[in-house]
Design a protein around this nucleic acid. Structure first.
Lengths: 351, 351
DNA sequence: GTTACGAATGTAATCGATTACATTAAAGTT
DNA sequence: AACTTTAATGTAATCGATTACATTCGTAAC
């Protein structure tokens, strides 16, 4: 069967190409290509011969060649606001596992670091490296991402978790407003009348949504909105530390605090504890996100749980749908449910 | 200057190619290519004309074409044991930021998920998708990664954090043995004579190294090795929970516990607390890693700090070195220093 | 004034796959 | 039997850049 070159222990044989497979199988390159991509268009006998030849030669497609010809990249860029933040890792895991099924690679970019050299950043997206974008960073509008320079290449974009308020890309998020509402409801039902709120950074879509939800909750339960009890933060533990210090300095203190995310709640509790204030004895605290560590914190944190892995999975699916059919038009804004997880950081107000 | 096609508001102009730039600049494609990659080989006037034309047309190289011709992928695969684990995110951030400088994309693969379908996994690495591998997963030997099927393509590999005990790839890691030794030293100096150890999974290189370090510390300070005080774990919080339950069931208990990582230490402290055992009043606990949350835990965790971002940066640099010169031969095993961070989870043994 | 050389640029082959179009053979139709 | 249709396969163009080799031109050397 073999022609010419021995296939055994030659010196430094270079990677087998489709041509080699064709030669071994005794067919044309077109047939090999077809066998591999549309198997049912070739006769069974031929197919088997090609498959055998491919196995024998150890053939692997060359992606650069395929992508060049197919005019695609076979990859998706995921824009992460801050790779160092553990919150995103599960989402990333969900994205990765889902896209792997479609033979799509996942390119990860930390927007915090790349934004500085922003020209390069935008350029990065438009040199055929990726066929689509998943952004976990709501501060990037799809307009900015796609039309920075009048370039014609428009990539499908899906937002996950965060989203851009200025355009209506498909997105996957949780019901932040309702989650925040549930948090307030929980505190209200425990008898708290004086509730504070530690928010994320101003302008962030999540901050806005969660604040709205919280305010609606205040209204529903007839709670007073006391401006001194609304702390500005940035979702970091340090924000919790600051809020705790503010709380300590108040003459009149809320008996419960809703934090817009778990991290800041943990920082808050930690600092309160260091100052002799115990949660939930002296003040109840509820968070948002349900990080792994929240369950094991002291006290275990009551919080609003987001299905992070599912967010990633849903975003990836939405993106692949859009990639398959760019004219699909209005793709949904999926809103996943949140869940109140009651642990030990909230307690009944002693009357 | 312009020939034929208008450059202004045409319908759906497709992405400009090198040919378009050449036409606008009035030179050949070769000159354009040279201007862009080896600017000093073209005359200044020509260079300026080309640059201007490139700007005017909004030209961007097509990576698939470049990669095909250059026989490279322009990307690096990072193998992460578990993307959901926050420990890895900072390392990833370091890798990403460093490789971005070399115009290399970062492909992320979760080995936990991909291992199942392992054929695909190994194949993934050898279809020209990547020019190099950074593995944070020590259970993958470079042999397995590179020679699964007699394929000739050998990719440069660097291990980070973990490493494979069975071969000597370049790697970047911290001084685990010394770190563990310092932990024991710290406890010994606080007067503890009865020290327990919660390890990671058996066989894991980090477990082995940290256990060795701990044992050496035991020896140095003349401490007894009590088998019941050595708990097997898997670096998870749950492992800490189990260890705590074991500790509670002991008739004779160690007064201090060294945990092979922070996560399990947090789980341990949390469960002890739930059972009325206070750290460090009743038992001292020290961890390893220095996660963000450790500083804000209750009590703030004494631990051995690893420079995670630096690990990523160093690994990325090592890899690019190796990619530039595959014959460099023995590349170093870099060992970065660790640091004992004393917080509040360890205390003097009351005499 | 001719030759030699080097710098600057152009022409065309090349990377390795996919696929439009062409060709062939077999089966079905009248 | 001649003709149409369909299935299976082959030939060669194509994707867009890089680069070996060829060409041109100006300048220095003799």
């Amino acid at each position: 069967m073999k022609t010419g070159k021995s296939n055994s222990n030659a010196v430094a044989k270079s990677a087998p190409k489709i041509k080699d497979v064709a030669r071994v199988a005794g067919v044309s390159v077109a047939t090999v290509s077809r066998t591999l991509s549309k198997p049912n268009t070739v006769a069974e006998g031929t197919r088997n011969a090609v498959l055998a030849a491919a196995k024998e030669t150890g053939y692997r497609v060359n992606l650069a060649a395929r992508n060049l010809r197919r005019q695609r990249a076979g990859a998706v860029v995921v824009l992460v606001p801050n790779l160092g933040n553990p919150f995103f890792s599960h989402i990333l895991a969900g994205i990765e596992s889902t896209l792997a099924n479609d033979d799509l690679s996942v390119l990860v970019v930390d927007t915090q670091q790349s934004k500085l050299k922003s020209e390069f950043f935008y350029e990065y997206l438009h040199i055929g490296r990726a066929d689509g974008i998943i952004s976990l960073d709501g501060s990037l509008s799809s307009e900015k991402l796609n039309t920075n320079d009048g370039s014609n290449s428009r990539l499908p974009i899906v937002f996950a978790c965060e989203w851009s308020q200025f355009d209506d890309c498909p997105s996957v998020r949780v019901n932040n407003r309702r989650g925040a509402g549930q948090a307030i409801q929980h505190l209200a039902e425990l008898g708290h009348k004086h509730i504070g709120f530690l928010n994320g950074p101003e302008g962030n879509v999540l901050s806005v949504a969660r604040k709205e939800g919280a305010l609606r909750g205040f209204q529903t339960y007839g709670l007073n909105v006391v401006p001194e009890w609304f702390f500005e933060g940035d979702f970091s533990m340090d924000a919790g530390v600051h809020a705790a210090n503010n709380w300590l300095g108040l003459s009149e203190r809320p008996t419960a605090i809703f934090c817009a995310n778990d991290e800041s709640a943990l920082g808050l509790i930690s600092t309160l504890h260091q100052n002799g204030v115990e949660v939930p004895r002296d003040v109840s605290v509820i968070g948002f996100d349900d990080l792994e560590v929240s369950e094991h914190f002291i006290p275990p944190l009551t919080t609003i749980s987001q299905p992070r892995m599912e967010l990633g999975i849903a975003a990836a699916k939405l993106l692949t749908q859009q990639m398959e059919d760019p004219f699909a038009g209005d793709l949904p804004k999926e809103v996943l449910p949140v869940e109140l997880v009651i642990r030990k950081s909230t307690a009944k107000l002693p009357s």
